[in-house]
Amino acid sequence: MPLANTLTSVPVTVDQEKCIADKGCTVCVDVCPLDVLAINAEAGTAYMKYDECWYCMPCEADCPTGAVNVSIPYLLR
């Protein structure tokens, strides 16, 4: 059975200006209970890779520069 790529709008956004992943920070990626965040090595910033969010907020609360914002996933909003 062949597979398709279906895109979704994700609830976690990362401010590219504030994110310091290029300096080696991985706090948001480390604390996510569902492991849905990742670092884009080229851009040097964190991003939400998988749409599997519990809107629980450790990523936002623990970010040292206030770069991460969690909104309520669209289906629940």
Binding site: P33, L34, E52, C53, W54, Y55, C56, P73, L75, L76
Partner: peptide
């Protein structure tokens, strides 16, 4: 009822 797999009461992990 939202249909969102991870919008559960419990931590979905």
């Amino acid at each position: 009822s939202s249909g969102y797999l991870f919008g559960t009461y419990e931590n979905p992990t």
